[in-house]
Design a protein around this nucleic acid. Structure first.
Lengths: 199, 199
DNA sequence: CCTGTTGTTGCGCGCCTGTCCAACACGGGA
DNA sequence: TCCCGTGTTGGACAGGCGCGCAACAACAGG
């Protein structure tokens, strides 16, 4: 038998184990038994904490995406100027080191139509990313007509380009995507070309 | 017993049936038994024509995406001017009438990492869309520095925005996406604002 | 008409899926 | 120290999966 845990602790352990499996096999291919094996526990335990697999996956995705979001927010907070914050945003919202994180997004978007909990989570976090950028633009007082729209377009271009890198690998290079995104953001936000290149 | 068919005919019937199922349940959730039931045949028949389910799904996706591509190409061919062709492109590469077609793309991108045949097909067709746009830009002789890069960015922005519409439904409206895409394309290709608004 | 080819069947194989639940074991309060 | 609440087990359940194969049936050529 596994060690007896406090409810909250166990819940977190389940989410962590689910994430570890999803990282290897993908969100959609993660099963109850996989998660149990990863934890070294029985499979029945998972359903003692979650009503359905949909909710387990949603919680796992939430954890991963929220963590990445918090990391970028942190990097932005340590910058004082608005331009500095934006630079930090584009330097850190990068798929270079954790390519599997973006695969999680791909899985979430595809599964959204069939897993209600996952859809709600993915939508909430997508909006959170957009808001992070939009609010920064608003506070910077840039020459940007509609920060919300601008932010959606930048995030979407980033998603569309990243998607090619992760799903097809050969069509586009990571550095190409980074530089295109920076140029596009500069023109949309009303910054001089090169403003967003990291120091 | 079902009617005996010529090999090529039966192959097409399998692809058509797979597509019908995928349209309802999604590409990743389409099974051998589903396809057989849709055709009204036995399940063993599918494996007599395809080595694996991966190849069945790849063929089905190929059929759907190629059909959409051909339809847009047709609409463009009936235009004489380059701007007319571009207008036709953006008027027809639309997710309004067949939302499920884009869901197929979402499934294909997500499954790409685990289904080799599907990945190859999705990559090939993604490049085909990009080329269709790139070649039209090149032939038009517009004020566009790098038609290939421009084309990738337009397609990617379109994918990223469409993704929000299909996966999350509430975040963005279809018409918003259409107008943003047209504006962006105009600025990237070097056209006067409004040039791409359909007559 | 007979025969060989081949499209088609239907089931079996081994394995997997999410969900549920009676039974068990452990640890804190009485 | 006992006892009860609850964290945990492990398998049952009904179903589903991709794949393979021996047997059958329909058609073409001789």
């Amino acid at each position: 038998m596994t060690v007896r845990m406090a409810p909250e602790e166990r819940r977190e352990a389940i989410v962590a184990a689910s994430l570890a499996v999803a990282r290897r096999k993908g969100l959609g291919a993660t099963t109850v038994r996989d998660v149990a094996a990863e934890m070294g526990s029985s499979s029945g335990l998972i359903h003692h904490y979650f009503d359905s697999m949909d909710e387990v996956l949603a919680a796992a995705f939430d954890q991963a995406a929220s963590h990445d979001l918090a990391q970028v927010e942190n990097a932005m907070d340590s910058e004082s100027s608005a331009v500095g914050k934006l630079r930090a945003f584009f330097a850190n919202y990068s798929i270079s080191d954790n390519e599997w994180a973006f695969q999680l997004w791909l899985d979430a978007w595809a599964e959204a139509s069939r897993r209600p909990a996952l859809r709600a989570t993915s939508e909430r976090l997508n909006v959170a990313w957009q808001q992070l950028l939009a609010i920064t633009i608003k506070e910077g007082g840039f020459d940007c007509e509609d920060p919300d729209a601008t932010s959606w377009r930048i995030i979407s271009l980033l998603d569309g380009l990243s998607l090619q890198v992760v799903a097809h690998q050969t069509t586009l290079a990571r550095e190409t995507v980074s530089s295109w995104i920076r140029s596009y953001a500069e023109s949309e936000i009303g910054l001089a070309p090169g403003s967003l290149i990291p120091a």
